[in-house]
Design a protein around this nucleic acid. Structure first.
Length: 878
RNA sequence: GGGCGAGUGGCGGAAUGGCAGACGCGAUGGACUCAAAAUCCAUUGGCCGCAAGGUCAUGAGAGUUCGACUCUCUCCUCGCCCACCA
């Protein structure tokens, strides 16, 4: 056994302060005194400090959750001490596939399991030392919450932003269930590893693409971690290009056009063939001219089988750089609109049916994929762009390689010699093409054929469908029928909104909640649920049995918390309020204007494009529906890093999950909090290891011991006077303040350690006032021990409500500084000099120094660089 | 294939144009102890040197600069995200 192992085993027995008693006491005290609950009406400086609420897995709170929450809480506590009215809520994202899968695994019904997990999570969350506003929690599976999730669906539906369309879903062959995209890992099922295929199902979508431009443009206006902004930009995936029509000819007869989308119209002269996706719908008159139609059909069938009716995920199709295959459509040719050349037409599997128009123009000289294909089938390769001649890229011209960059046009008729970037629009005009902006972003598919989610609140009525279709087919007749339908109902004939007063559509208890397969939710086998009457015409109708995506639950929870606040005053404060029950809807809440948008949001980067993107989309919709006046829900967002273990992500399957409970039991929350924050920069995460925890134990032991000794010496001798505050302490205040503002908690803790080391040099000289400044700065990191010391020192109000120490710039300013003397950039000497000393004077002093003289000797001084109050560099020859 | 990030002692990391390695872990030596743990003190990047000191060193190579861990370019390695998006 190494010393290290021994240390870790025994260390908890050497903690000097009774942490478990202290932490229990103060938790109770804070709750009782409600010190973390702002006065929402009267608050002068509201600060909404949001952290991503966890989904309550059965395993309990993960150390990764605690890492994120501690980091967010430190900032919240800091802001509270800076005088802000901080609202720091917590809740559970308990609806959805994660929780359902866990329930399936252990064989406990999710309604029951959610209550068990809820209890466990809240119990754990109470121990981690966060300053949660405990009275305003929420759970997404609470009918009072999902009533409003359903309400949101209805608003989008009524306003034409929700529609129904056939779309493929991920389907695990062996589990017979629908999977979410994130459960499909490289085309395989996350749980059983078997093949995932796609099935066509009718699904509900939100028209997020209508907001693509705004979602993109607003990114420039928000203060978010840069990498999240970049991910979101890529997710929108705006590309500007052109739609180009190619005329098709078959032995002098014009047949039909094929339209392609390209971002590189400038390479039009390099187009030497066209490629259609195997999914491309060939027009009949085109088909009839193809001489090898049999072969083509065979190829279509072959790729169809290979790609599971074309429905495999794109990922599956692109796996391992699969060799491209294809077949020429013989007997027909396309005309390059730029130069009138006849070019061949191919069908190949590297062109996707669902991207662009399902057809491309191939420029093998300037596109890697086209190049590979052209090589294989011995097609011509025509260079039309060369890199700017001034660059060294010229050499590459001679080679066979593909040049995908911008450059100067060649072989391009009258455009020769022009720069490719500038020529795009001219070429579009020249060939009579259309400018087109395309987005990668797809509409948000919100249907889930699962159990554990909010039922989508719509009803299908055959009668209304007929009525509507009749009325629409005879527009000249009386249209009063159609007028009574909302936009969503008109656009999705037969689908009728559940009236808002009938919300929530409660999720019924279904004993066998396992996904049934056949692309249906388990609710589809619950007659009492789906059998209903049409709210419009009263005839027999069928309820939608799909539930909505978990991300819809979490896309508005920041409003949900405020909803619970607004309603809490109509309820005894001791009983839990909900977002819905009383006076205010979370969407017509007088607190919205005062408390939103969220001031600081901290969470994981893994939500860069899902949760954060959907939340932004819905906020924009809410703004357009005049629910509130802002369009970005989170003013500031910071992504924290990931805590890993032994270099790998923590996961159940690897068995390397760290449970915070054990550590809290052994060391207390203060020590675990500080240990987590000291691992590395909060924004970067780090490797969780036991070895360094003893450093934090020693640190807090010394804090405790020093506190007690200052107290006893003060009692005995009166102690040092408080006005003698040390200048270096003010430097530390500045440093710690700035570090916390930038979430650099690791260096803030290092500075706290320096203060303590300095105190311990001459403990008898430390006044209790100085010590209390230190306690305050330690408080956000270690809320319990600091509160205990604070009260031991005779304070009557919580340290967490005290004011953050201010530093005095005059005290930090020193009289002298250490001048670094360099010769040719190397440090050769140091001098203690007065601040503000003039260059001439410094030169005189430095050049007179024996050391410097010995270096210079006969050599010539070429020049001298002087940086005031910092450095002098003497440049000599040789 | 694309995007983003990272690469610094035995380890986690600090320094973002001006003294590389703050702070912490670990290790070594010492004090205390019957002994251990804890605690305290000292040392702790490599090489040369008795020492003073010198010298090399921030993934590799170039460049800019009086001066580069820091800025620029090329390459290598690792991580994350996206991925035949035309």
């Amino acid at each position: 056994m190494t010393n290290n192992q021994r240390n870790v085993q025994n260390i908890e027995s050497v903690i000097h302060y009774p942490f478990s008693k202290i932490e229990k006491n103060w938790t109770g005290f804070w709750l009782k005194k409600k010190i973390y609950e702002p006065d929402f009406q009267r608050a002068k400086k509201p600060f909404y400090n949001l952290m991503m609420f966890p989904y309550p897995s059965g395993e309990g709170l993960h150390v990764g959750n605690m890492y994120a929450f501690t980091g967010s809480d430190i900032f919240g506590r800091f802001m509270r001490m800076k005088g802000y009215d901080v609202f720091e809520p917590i809740g559970l994202d308990g609806f959805g596939i994660h929780s359902e899968n866990y329930a399936l695994k252990i064989g406990v019904h999710p309604t029951k399991q959610s209550k068990i997990s809820e209890k466990r999570f809240y119990k754990q969350l109470l121990t981690i030392g966060n300053s949660f506003a405990w009275n305003y929690r929420l759970e997404t599976y609470d009918p009072n919450y999902y009533r409003w999730t359903q309400w949101i669906f209805l608003q989008l539906f009524k306003n034409g932003l929700a529609y129904r369309k056939k779309s493929p879903v991920n389907w695990c062959v062996s589990c017979k269930t629908v999977l979410a995209d994130e459960q499909v890992i490289a085309g395989k099922c996350e749980r059983c590893g078997s093949q995932v295929i796609k099935k066509e199902l009718e699904q509900w979508f939100f028209k997020i693409t209508e907001y693509a431009e705004k979602l993109l443009n607003n990114i420039n206006k928000i203060d978010w971690s840069e990498k999240i902004k970049i991910s979101q930009r890529n997710w929108v995936g705006k590309s500007e290009g052109a739609l180009i029509k190619f005329k098709i000819q078959s032995s002098k007869f014009k047949v039909d056009d094929i339209e392609v989308f390209t971002t590189r119209p400038d390479t039009i002269f390099g187009v030497v063939y066209l490629v259609l996706s195997p999914q491309y719908g060939l027009a009949k008159n085109l088909e009839s001219k193809i001489k090898n139609l049999k072969e083509v059909k065979k190829y279509i069938g072959q790729t169809k089988r290979e790609f599971n009716d074309f429905n495999n995920s794109l990922q599956e199709r692109t796996v391992e750089n699969k060799e491209k295959t294809g077949v020429e459509l013989k007997g027909i040719k396309a005309i390059n609109p730029a130069n009138g050349e006849e070019i061949s037409i191919w069908m190949a599997d590297y062109v996707l049916g669902n991207v662009g128009t399902g057809a491309i123009m191939a420029v093998p000289a300037h596109d890697q994929r086209d190049f590979e294909f052209a090589k294989k089938y011995k097609l011509p390769i025509k260079k039309v762009i060369i890199p700017n001649l001034s660059t060294y890229e010229v050499n590459r011209l001679e080679g066979e390689g593909v040049y995908e960059g911008e450059g100067i046009l060649i072989n391009s008729g009258k455009f020769n010699g022009m720069p490719s970037q500038k020529v795009k629009l001219q070429i579009i005009k020249f060939i009579g093409a259309k400018k087109k902006t395309q987005y990668r972003l797809r509409d948000w598919l919100i249907s889930r054929q699962r159990y554990w989610g909010p039922p989508i609140p719509v009803i299908f009525c055959e009668n209304c469908k007929k009525l509507l279709e009749n009325s629409l087919s005879r527009p000249n007749l009386d249209n009063s029928c159609a007028k009574s339908f909302s936009k969503g109902e008109l656009e999705n004939p037969g689908w009728i909104a559940v009236p808002e007063k009938n919300l929530p559509v409660k999720l019924p208890f279904v004993k066998d909640f396992k996904p049934v397969g056949a692309g249906k939710s388990p609710l589809a086998s619950v007659k009492s649920f789906y059998e209903t009457k049409c709210p419009k015409c009263g005839s027999k109708a069928r309820r939608e049995t799909d539930v909505s995506d978990t991300f819809l639950d979490s896309a508005w929870y920041y409003l949900g918390y405020l909803g619970t606040v607004a309603n809490s005053k109509f309820q005894g404060l001791n009983s839990k309020s909900t977002p819905s029950s009383f006076q205010y809807s979370p969407f017509s809440n007088p607190l919205i204007t005062k408390w939103l948008p969220v001031h600081c949001y901290i969470g994981g980067a893994e939500h860069a494009v899902l949760h954060l993107f959907y939340s932004r989309f819905l906020a924009m919709v809410f703004k357009d529906l005049k629910i509130f006046s802002f369009e970005e829900p989170f003013t500031v967002f910071r992504a924290h890093g990931l805590i890993i273990k032994e270099g790998r992500k923590m996961s159940k399957s690897k068995g390397n999950i760290v449970n915070p409970d054990e550590y809290i039991k052994k060391f207390g929350a203060d020590i675990l909090r500080m240990h987590l924050m000291f691992i590395g920069p909060f924004k970067e995460g780090g490797d969780f290891r036991d070895s360094a925890i003893s450093g934090i134990v020693r640190f807090l032991n010394r804090v405790w011991d020093l506190g007690l000794s200052i107290l006893s010496s003060n009692k005995n001798k009166g102690g040092p006077k408080s006005e003698k505050i040390l200048p270096w302490l003010h430097f530390s205040i500045k440093k710690i303040t700035e570090d916390i503002e930038n979430l650099r908690y690791n260096t803030a803790i290092a500075e706290l350690m320096i203060i303590l080391n300095n105190f311990n040099e001459f403990p008898e000289k430390v006044s209790s006032a100085d010590f209390k400044i230190f306690v305050k700065m330690l408080a956000p990191f270690a809320p319990f021990i600091t509160e205990e010391l604070w009260f031991i020192f005779g304070e009557k109000n919580s340290v967490h409500l005290s004011d953050w120490p201010k530093y005095n710039p005059n005290l930090i300013r020193k009289k002298t500084f250490e001048l670094v003397v360099q010769i040719n950039g190397k440090v050769r000497d140091k001098r203690e000099l007065n601040i503000g000393i003039k260059e001439d004077e410094v030169k005189k002093i430095v050049l007179a120094g024996e050391k410097v003289k010995s270096f210079i000797k006969e050599k010539k001084i070429i020049k001298i660089i002087f940086v005031p109050d910092k450095l002098i560099n003497i440049v000599i020859n040789g």
